[in-house]
Design a binder for these strands. Structure first.
Length: 503
RNA sequence: GCCCCCAUCGUCUAGAGGACUAGGAUGUCAGCCUUUCAAGCUGAAGACAGGGGUUCGAAUCCCCUUGGGGGCGCCA
């Protein structure tokens, strides 16, 4: 077996968790669990300008909803804390000072304005864009002068000028960069906060992270991190840069804005939107794990434990993938169908309560709803699909719309009146109001009159629900009960009669 | 512009030189089932980006081209 790995997910509370980030977290979690190691949650809140107050809460909520748990983190603690970078400032400052003392980094006194000017000039002259290292070569006297001016400074990494860096990425193999392509990146900002580059290296080392798993947008700064590890004299962790998830159009990776599919529909990108839309967490987990990774050559539906058992970083497909939205809807439907009737009932309640504005407790003890659940189960792709399939249970007055909609195909309005009268007639005599009896009775009626089943069922469906598309009829009749069913049928009959008279 | 990464059905993927007539899933289409809609079942169409090598043999290895993605911030 593999040695236990320590992996982490390190979101920044500058926004909510999007599905790409969630998938990366999922992979990191799977690997930790696969190896019997630990999964750590760390908050990278070193950007004070873009901080979003409720982001952290939402992120944690989302991860928990997905079923990810962490062994160490800001809310659960752990031996390597604190797990929030803003609470670790002195560590970064010490590390940065150490680097300066030992010649691996230097103070840079340039202002943002000076840097912007420099970039503009580079652009105008079509030169390579990047910091020109002007402060790297300052003499001690010049430095003293700058500091005497009262200038603030940042600390920049002194990247080796020659040679190259290589590191092994588990997903992609060996990746090499020429040192001359690298920037003297800022490590410590003027406000005393570290940048990502410093913080990630210091923390990953301090927290004994064995596998750095992160999105592929980090691949180009990985060589910087390698130089930092070397400067500190620390062992390198293993790296795995996960492929991006692209928009359905294939144009660019997903970002904070909702996705537009080529056919114009919109797909939400934030994880927290999925529960609201009626997706099951276990379906989302299964679905997300299948972008960039697969269990084998034929299994699509599998649970967490199975995924854990089979998962390996080296099996991740390095190619970026588009978000296969249609597959999620299919898979969610599969998971809904796997639920027991009781469980589905339980999970449906919050959605119905929200959409129909009925208290949850009332829905929980509603027997009519229970009758209908088996009938709607295979009709749901999302939990929110249930509302239009049951809403006619909860209204006193079904809106029939155009009475002509009561009339089935290949049937005249006059015939429909007769059919409805016959239906009411036979149903009045049914004492045993059960699905089987009702079905037998109504089919017999159709046969006796030489009608197709649809010609009898369709007016009933319309009369009871006001809809053309509904779950099967007999559960609906049972759920509604004899009195209400007959009441709605009579009302429909009167309405149709009235319409015919006018015609 | 420069650097890095990537390239199998529309889409998500299997494939680590011969087991490939390239497998699965989704989506699409057709049929069956059928009280509407679903679900289910059966079937169909559908891919190795292009060009050079290496090899007895290449979807698999190498090179080039093309295409896509990412990065080049006192943001992560």
């Amino acid at each position: 077996m593999t040695t236990p790995a320590r992996t982490r997910f390190a979101p920044s509370p500058t926004g909510y968790l999007h599905i790409g980030g969630a998938r990366t977290a999922l992979f990191a979690w799977l690997y930790a669990r696969h190896t019997g190691g630990q999964f750590i949650l760390r908050i990278e809140d070193t950007d004070r300008k873009r901080y979003v107050p409720d982001a952290l809460e939402k992120i944690i909520e989302g991860l928990r909803w997905l079923g990810l748990d962490w062994d160490e983190g800001p809310d659960v603690g752990g031996p390597h804390g604190p797990y929030i970078q803003s609470a670790r400032l002195s560590m970064y400052q010490e590390a940065a000072d150490w680097l300066v003392e030992h010649g691996y980094a230097y103070r840079c006194y340039c202002t943002s304005e000076e840097l912007a000017e420099m970039r503009a000039e580079q652009q105008a002259k079509k030169q390579k864009i990047g910091y020109d290292r002007r402060c790297r070569w300052l003499t001690p006297e010049e430095r003293a002068a700058k500091e005497a001016e009262g200038r603030s400074w940042v600390i920049r990494l002194a990247v080796p000028l020659k040679g190259s860096v290589s590191f092994e990425d588990i997903i992609r193999g060996i990746v090499t960069f020429d040192n001359k392509e690298l920037q003297d990146a800022v490590l410590l900002k003027a406000d005393g906060y570290p940048t990502y580059h410093l913080a990630v290296v210091v923390d990953d080392h301090d927290m004994a992270i064995t596998h750095v798993i992160r999105g592929e947008e980090w691949i180009s700064s990985a060589p910087l991190h390698v130089h930092l590890y070397r400067a500190f004299g620390w062992d390198l962790p293993a790296f795995a840069h996960t492929p991006s998830i692209l928009k359905p159009s294939g144009k660019g990776k997903i970002s904070k804005r909702d996705l537009k599919t080529p056919d114009g529909t919109t797909i939400p990108v934030m994880l927290h939107q999925y529960p609201e839309l009626g997706y099951l967490p276990e379906a989302m987990f299964n679905f997300l794990s299948g972008i960039g990774w697969s269990l084998d050559d034929h299994t699509e539906i599998y649970d967490r434990d199975t995924a854990i058992k089979h998962f390996d970083l080296k099996d991740i497909n390095p190619a970026p993938a588009r978000f296969p939205a249609e597959k999620l809807d299919w898979m969610n439907g599969v998971y809904i169908r796997m639920l027991s009737v009781d469980e589905l009932h339980r999970r449906l309640i919050p959605y119905l309560s929200r959409d129909l504005d009925i208290p949850q407790e009332e829905l929980a003890r509603d027997e009519r709803l229970k009758v209908l659940i088996p009938a709607i189960q295979e009709r749901l792709k999302r939990l929110t699909d249930a509302t239009p399939l049951v809403d006619y249970l909860f209204t006193d007055d079904v809106d029939l719309g155009d009475p002509m909609s009561l009339v089935p195909r290949k049937t005249t309005p006059e015939q429909t009146v007769e059919i409805l009268e016959a239906i009411i007639d036979v149903l009045e005599d049914v004492s045993d109001w059960e699905e089987e009896t009702l079905e037998r009775t109504l089919r017999a009626l159709a046969e006796a009159r030489g009608l197709k089943a649809g010609q009898v069922f369709s007016p009933i469906r319309q009369a009871l629900t006001g809809k053309k598309v509904t779950p099967p009829l007999f559960p609906i009749l049972v759920a509604l009960g004899k009195d209400i069913s007959l009441k709605r049928l009579r009302k429909a009959l009167e309405l149709l009669k009235g319409t015919i008279m006018v015609l």
